[in-house]
Amino acid sequence: MNQASSAKSKIELLIASIARSLEGCRHVAVGASSPIPGAGALLAKHLSKNTMRVSILGSERHNFFTDGGVELFDLAAQGRIDAFFLGGGQIDGDGNINLVGAGDTYPQHTVRWPGSFGSAYMYYLVPKVILFREEHSRRVFVPKVDFISSPGSSSNNIYRRGGPMSLLTNLCKFSFNKNENEFRLESLHPGVTLEEVLNNTGFSFTHPKKIPVTELPSYEMMNTIQSLIQDQLSEIYPIFAKRMAAFQKG
């Protein structure tokens, strides 16, 4: 397998994995700059025979909002969104996410990222938040984040019906146990070892004795992904769509 086709199949695996975890959702929303979650949500919608609603920020076509940017947050507050995606420059073992910066002290962090977006709200209010971060490394998965854009959990008196459901990376998929406040390794992507995950994760997590391999995309999924990316994602993520198209040719 050459490098381009291996990168392409990794992306397809991630998209399929996201689609599987969205099964049964009525309405999935996708934030800005999230091409893989966007593709996963559109794939899930296709698999649901279009009974699932998908709203992608920044899209004219995949977006029924008529009340401006505030509508996404109002929908979330009312419980009208079942699933959402968040990432982070850093994510720690308590599910805290950091989209602001790392090193030194705020606001003069050594490394600064764009900012918290809607995370300090959506993480509390959307029941299923899927954490997605391709890079699986100790600089991302840290013992404790340098800045909490949004906490993974809150004390009992804080109004909160949402939080982390799972964490998907380039290497594996974790679930989040809300009672124990910790991640559990659910599956390893093909060819990845537990040792590799342990070496690249800065927080501790639990795992079953025998760890399953992440399920590969079905034939139907593969076909759908190719047409989705070419026909639908190019509107919102032109660079990503170009990159994928180059893989198809390559």
Partner: peptide, 29 residues
């Protein structure tokens, strides 16, 4: 955070001095 900016503007629309919003508690913001 996005909804806080919208909510702050919505308070101004209504001519009220402040507005409550869910979330945020526990964030370093």
């Amino acid at each position: 955070t996005c909804p806080a900016i919208y909510a702050g503007l919505q308070a101004a629309e209504k001519g009220i001095p402040f507005i409550p919003l869910r979330g945020i508690i526990g964030s370093d913001l």
